[in-house]
Each structure stands twice: as structure tokens, then as C-alpha cells.
Design a protein around this nucleic acid. Structure first.
Lengths: 142, 142
DNA sequence: AATGCAAATGCGAATCATTTGCATTTTTAG
DNA sequence: CTAAAAATGCAAATGATTCGCATTTGCATT
């Protein structure tokens, strides 16, 4: 299936077009797992795209505010990671050895959230979950 | 039940005693929910205890390394929070309005972790979970 | 109680990611 | 094509965390 053009995506969330925004969106689309801002910046350089770092920050803020991306904190890497927002949100298994982030297909929190809402008189509107350990490739080293 | 003295706790994990370490441990024991390093520093000042901020950082690093505390990242507050390590680890419901952190008594991840280990060929060694929403007091404002 | 040594602390400076102010450039609307 | 508004680049500021080094502390030994 063909994906929506970055131009259209910006349009859809009422963000003005700019070269830099399109580039970043395109780069984010390529990613299979979340990346840090630093990695994104390196990616920009490696493609000879030249976007000022402060602009990257500003654009990511705008993307976040307009729900184009998700920003979570990866304790393992001690930094934020960014990913394009998917139709349903994802969680990851994070390898403590090779740092790989493996997406979990269906969010295991559904039932848990329901339970909590019933039992605790708390309205759940979001959650963050990461699972740390060793992936199949690295498991043998431990 | 009477709790272990800070002195003994330090001893148990083979950390040398110092005034500052005892003070911090005492302060952490008082807390019912995690606090930021900044809050801890303020607490130190308000008790006229005087511990240099860089020392606080160093001591917390030592506590972490020796498993006296847990350090997690609270996305809502955009900073790390610290708590004394409990016999079994906790997760929190975090109110997006008043920022209160309400501990969940039993960790809902047990079954999920087992499932993942079976299905994914991934060895789980830790996880981080926070649930964001509105507590009973703040729910009416939303 | 005094001494010596290793480890911990205080202090100021350095570092590093992120943010900000402002001049310049780009985008969009007319 | 032009003008106004918004976005970007650049350099400097900020703020949390870390570091180096001189001083102090805790503790074992005398």
C-alpha cells in the first residue's frame, strides 16, 4: 500500500509546508523503530540535508503538538526517542545488550487499563510501557 | 513494624556510612511516592541539612548501583524520579492534572511478561510502566 | 585519645542537550 | 509578482548533570 505523502500529512494536521519538515517526515517514515533526536540529526547529515539542530527541535515539537509523532523516554538509552504515530500505539521489547527495539504487535495493556478504571476510580488516558531484557541474538551472551 | 536504620541499610549493601548518606536515606524513607532530584534537594535545604548538589547526585548513583533505590523517568514531569526500593517493585497511576502518583498494589505485568517470553524468544529482565490519566479528585475538571 | 589512610564531600568549572532572541529566508495568500 | 506571516539559521543562553581537585570525614590501628 502506498503511504500518504509528507506534504499531505502536513496539510492534514494544518502545518505549513517547508523543505525541512518534509525531509524530517520522510526520514521518520523510513524508520522501523524509534530513534533519538541525535540519531535523527546524524541521519539528516548523512543524507546531506542540512537542517539546523534547533530547527529539528522546533519541528519535532510542532509534530508532537500536532500528533504526527510520539515521543517516549528510553531508560536504557537515557534519552527520548521519536517515532511516527501509528494507527494504534506500540510498545517495545528493548535489548539491554544490542539496544534493538522490537515492537510488540498488540498492546497488552487493554485489559489492565479496564481493570484499573473499575477498581481505582481513575480515568486512564495514556500509558507508557517498555520491557527490557535480551533478544534472541544476545541471549547467549548472558 | 519498625524499619531498618539507615546505618544498617548502608551496611547491608556494603556502602560506607556518612552523614549525608544517612540524611538522604532518611528523607527517602519518608516519601510515599517517588520524588525528583530537585525535590529531594529542596527537601534537604528545608531541613537545613546542607548537602552539596553534586554530592546528592553521587550518592544517588551509589544508591542505585547498590540497589537501594529505583530511578524511573516520569514523562509527565519530564524528569527522573527516585524512590526507595520496595520488596516488590511498583507502578503508578499518574494524574495529568495534580501530578499525584498513586501506587498500584500488584504489578499487572506478570502474566504479560510470561506470555512475551514464550511467544517472542526474548528474555525479560525488567520493565517500566506508567499509567497517565485523571485521579478521582481531578476527574471532574475534565 | 591521637594518627594515618582511603573514601566521600564541597566547590567551582566544564559539559552537553535543549531553548531562546533575533536577523534572514521561505512560504503562502492576494 | 509582492507583501505579510511564519519558519529557519546562527550564536548565545540556559539548566541539569558531571568532573577535577583540594579538603574533610569515617574508621581502623596504635
Amino acid at each position: 500500500m502506498k503511504q500518504t505523502s509528507s506534504r499531505t500529512m502536513l496539510d492534514n494536521v494544518h502545518l505549513k509546508y517547508s523543505r525541512q519538515r518534509e525531509w524530517l517526515l520522510d526520514l521518520l517514515k523510513e524508520q522501523k523503530t524509534p530513534i533519538t533526536i541525535e540519531q535523527l540529526d546524524e541521519l539528516v547529515r548523512s543524507r546531506k540535508l542540512s537542517i539546523n539542530l534547533s530547527t529539528i527541535y522546533r519541528i519535532l515539537d510542532a509534530f508532537l503538538k500536532h500528533d504526527l509523532i510520539e515521543k517516549t523516554f528510553n531508560i536504557q538509552m537515557q534519552s527520548y526517542v521519536i517515532e511516527l504515530k501509528h494507527s494504534h500505539h506500540r510498545h517495545y521489547l528493548i535489548c539491554l545488550d544490542c539496544q534493538k527495539m522490537i515492537p510488540i504487535n498488540h498492546c497488552p495493556m487493554h485489559n489492565i487499563v479496564e481493570e484499573i478504571e473499575k477498581e481505582q476510580n481513575f480515568h486512564v488516558s495514556a500509558h507508557q510501557l517498555e520491557i527490557y531484557g535480551y533478544c534472541s541474538a544476545c541471549i547467549k551472551n548472558h
